[in-house]
Every structure is written in C-alpha cells, then in structure tokens.
C-alpha cells in the first residue's frame, strides 16, 4: 500500500483510540478528590496515592486481588494440564472422532453463559460448592478447556512426530514420551495457552457474580462492578482498583504480545 501524507495521522488515531480512554482513568486514580470532579477537567494529576490507600484499606481490594490470583492460577494450572493430555491424544492418535470432539469444544465455547447458568448453579449448590474456591475453579476449568485444547492442539500438531517415535522405539511409554519429549518441545505453546487462559479467567464476570456471593471470596471483576457508593460514586477509588486489576494484564500483553497474537490467531486463520 502506498502511504499518503495522512499516514502519521492514522498511527496517532489508532494509538489514541486504544490508549487515551484508559489512560484518563489511570490519571484519575492519581488525582485528589477535588481534581476528579473539576470542570474543566485537569489532565495532570497531583500524584496523590490516597485513592489507592483507601481502595486497599477501606474497600478490601487486597482480598479481591488475592481471590483473583488464587482462582486464576489454579484454573490455569489445572486446565492446561488436562488440556495438554486431551490435545496430545487428539493430535497423536489417529482417532475417528477427533473432528467431532474439536467441533464439540468449539460449539461449547460459543454457548451463551445464561444457557448453562441455572443448572451449573444447581450442580454446585448440590455439591455445597457455591461460595468456594473449588466451585468457581471447577466451572472455570470447564469454560477455559475449549480455548486451552484448541491452542495446544495447534501447537502440538506442528511438533515433528519423528522425535517422539524415536523415544517410543527406545522403550519410552506414552506418558514418558509426553512428559520427556513432547512437553519440553511444546513449552512455548503451553506458555501461550497459559497466558490466554489466565487473562480469560482473570476477567470473567458472569459466573463469578453467580457463584461468589460471599464478599470474602469475590474476585476483582465482581469487586469492581459492585463497588459500593453511598451518595456519590467513589470514582477515585474505582479508578485505583481498576488500574491495579489491569496492571498484570497490561504487563503480560506488553511483554508477550507476539505470543498472544500468535495464540489468538492460531485456531482462527492459520489452522
């Protein structure tokens, strides 16, 4: 494509569109109470940390961070482990229903949450798992498995079968071949899938709202959505909590953008 004189303008537009709204929220978190509601708006904050302190101390932000970290890490670990076995079986054995299973997972990942929410709630209620870590993690594993299996299957498919075959001939069992040969080679794929599952779970709101009604167990999205405001909204505190909730994701995105882009487009176009 030939670039016209407007080329730099496009770059600024795309960058500004993506960055400015959130940057405004981050700047808000560093303002003083008077600055937040000032008209005309003040762009440069006074760099107060008051809102962060009050979000952490008065609004239980630390508790939400801890819950989110526990739930997202556990889910990622377990669903990647389960997903790796499934993806290995789907790409290494000539199974007649590989197609069907992958399509089933794809279809499941497209279900609207409300279509399964009632019965999921009743199952967890019957198990006594509402308002527990294991309850939310179990639901999240099921929700993130399609993503994990699809991404891992695309990565496993690209690994040469010969190396593994050699290991099998040398007397390795299937599990040993998977553990000692395939997994180390597939490490980049496992890592990419982990990042995507982690982000997916960290941001999930629907089932967290449904399953975790006890404030002591709620995750960040629920905490931020239900931020209490008695007369006026505590915008400074909400902005501070939002910044903290988003920081790990922004760091992951900036550091691993190549992997994320590759992982997201893996199932889609490149096959």
């Amino acid at each position: 494509m030939r670039r016209g004189v407007l080329w730099p303008l496009w770059l600024v537009l795309i960058g500004g569109f993506s960055l400015v709204p959130f940057l405004w929220f981050v700047l808000t978190s560093w303002k003083s109470a008077a600055q937040v509601t000032a008209i005309p708006p003040e762009i440069v904050p006074d760099f107060h940390w008051g809102f962060y302190l009050s979000a952490l101390r008065d609004h239980g932000l630390l508790k939400y961070i801890r819950n989110s970290a526990i739930v997202a890490s556990l889910t990622t670990l377990i669903s990647i482990a389960i997903g790796a076995f499934a993806a290995y079986a789907l790409t290494r054995f000539q199974l007649p229903w590989t197609r069907t299973y992958l399509m089933l997972l794809l279809a499941v990942s497209m279900f609207p949450q409300i279509a399964i929410a009632g019965p999921v709630w009743r199952i967890l209620s019957a198990l006594g798992w509402l308002n527990t870590y294991q309850g939310i993690v179990a639901a999240y594993i099921a929700l993130s498995l399609p993503l994990a299996v699809w991404i891992l299957a695309t990565f496993f498919k690209e690994l040469p079968y010969e190396v593994e075959e050699a290991a099998l001939i040398d007397g390795c069992t299937r599990v040993q071949a998977l553990w000692k040969v395939v997994l180390p080679l597939a490490a980049p794929g496992l890592f990419t899938a982990s990042i995507l599952v982690f982000i997916h779970v960290w941001n999930e709101f629907f089932f967290a709202l449904l399953i975790l009604t006890n404030p002591a167990l709620q995750t960040l999205p629920v905490g931020i959505a239900l931020f209490p405001g008695e007369y006026t909204m505590p915008w400074g505190e909400i902005a501070a909590a939002s910044t903290i909730a988003t920081l790990p994701l922004i760091l992951l995105t900036l550091i691993f953008q190549r992997r994320i882009v590759r992982g997201l487009s893996a199932g889609a176009i490149k096959g």
Binding site: I14, G15, S18, L19, P21, F22, W24, F25, I199, W202, N203, F205, L220, P221, V222, I224, A225, F227, I238, A239, S242, A245, T246, L249, I250, L252, T253, L254, Q257, I260, V261
Partner: peptide, 17 residues
C-alpha cells in the same frame, strides 16, 4: 501492543471507565 490494551482490560473495568 498498545492496540491490544482494550482487549486485555477486564470488561468490567472498561465499563466503569
């Protein structure tokens, strides 16, 4: 990377924003 920021932000956070 900047373009990916809206995608990475929790929807709840972008809603409050």
């Amino acid at each position: 990377a900047v373009m990916l920021i809206p995608w990475a932000i929790p929807t709840v956070v972008s809603a409050q924003m």
